[in-house]
């Protein structure tokens, strides 16, 4: 194998790994949001949360599907979702945190939706055409998600004492998981150099400005505490992910080779 074919193979494997990460982010968060079905504060919200969950599950299928096509070894989207272990999942930790109460869900969605807004926008400039197509589709969904999570943050932040308390508590509990969203590892750096991946570090200022704007109107404050938990992209997870995967994968794994 010549040096340049070897590089090509490596960068293809890099792209596959990158796609799988993005798929992991989507499926894990989609799973969490889907847990709201029949548990929402009223029926209209059950339906709306269902739509958000469906968007994320659909997105996961697109990322995994693209990875499967590139793999050229007969792998399917389901192999990525159902046949990998906790250590192999590379989603950001923020996505795997339990669904919590409604305030917790709204705060998580707000932070992630605003992140996705900038992330998908940047992804549209990727040199990989399929990624661009996925980003185009997903960013339409995300504009709607942002609209929802922003208006909910305002309602709950500026609602009653109780709702404000719950929202601030959620912010304090989740904030430390937001830092790793803006960190780039070696894999992503190679893909950034190749014009394929998004340079997350560049998104931080815009994201922070968006968050501060919503927080200010909602009367919420960014915690001063400096704790930060990292590790999602290295497969170093909280204990929550294992249980999520146990539930998600058990039927699929109980019947090896079966089709559904």
């Amino acid at each position: 194998m010549t040096q340049s074919t070897q590089n090509k193979v490596d960068s293809k494997q890099d792209l596959i790994n990158y796609l799988v990460r993005l798929g992991d982010d989507s499926i894990v968060l989609g799973h969490r949001v889907s847990e709201w079905v029949s548990n929402g504060p009223f029926l209209e919200e059950d339906i709306a949360l269902g739509n958000v969950a469906l968007d994320y599950i659909g997105r996961a299928r697109l990322f995994y599907g693209h990875a499967a096509t590139l793999s050229e070894d007969g792998k399917t989207e389901d192999d990525f979702a159902f046949l990998r272990d906790e250590r192999e999942f590379e989603n950001y930790l923020i996505n795997e945190l339990p669904r919590g109460d409604f305030a917790y869900t709204i705060v998580r969605q707000l932070l992630v939706d605003l992140y996705n807004k900038h992330h998908l926008q940047a992804l549209k400039s990727s040199t990989d055409e399929t990624l661009v197509a996925i980003a185009e589709k997903a960013s339409k969904e995300t504009s709607y998600h942002c609209r929802r999570s922003t208006s909910w943050a305002l309602r709950l932040g500026d609602g009653t004492q109780e709702s404000k308390r719950r929202m601030q508590l959620a912010v304090d509990d989740i904030w430390g998981y937001s830092h790793e969203l803006f960190e780039v590892d070696a894999l992503e750096q190679r893909l950034i150099d190749a014009g394929i991946a998004v340079d997350c570090e560049q998104l931080k200022q815009q994201w922070l400005a968006d968050v501060e704007e919503v927080f200010e109107e909602a009367g919420l404050t960014i915690p001063e505490a400096t704790w930060a938990v990292r590790g999602g992209r290295k497969g170093y997870h909280t204990e929550h992910l294992g249980h999520l995967l146990t539930q998600m994968q058990f039927v699929h794994r109980s019947f090896p080779g079966a089709t559904w």
Partner: peptide, 28 residues
Amino acid sequence: GNWITRAPSLRRKAVLLAKVQDEAGHGL
């Protein structure tokens, strides 16, 4: 809803979720 998080394939998961969501819509 009891089975959405355990559906054995991603396609089935999406279909089941859409269906349960429809039921909420029909209730409404």
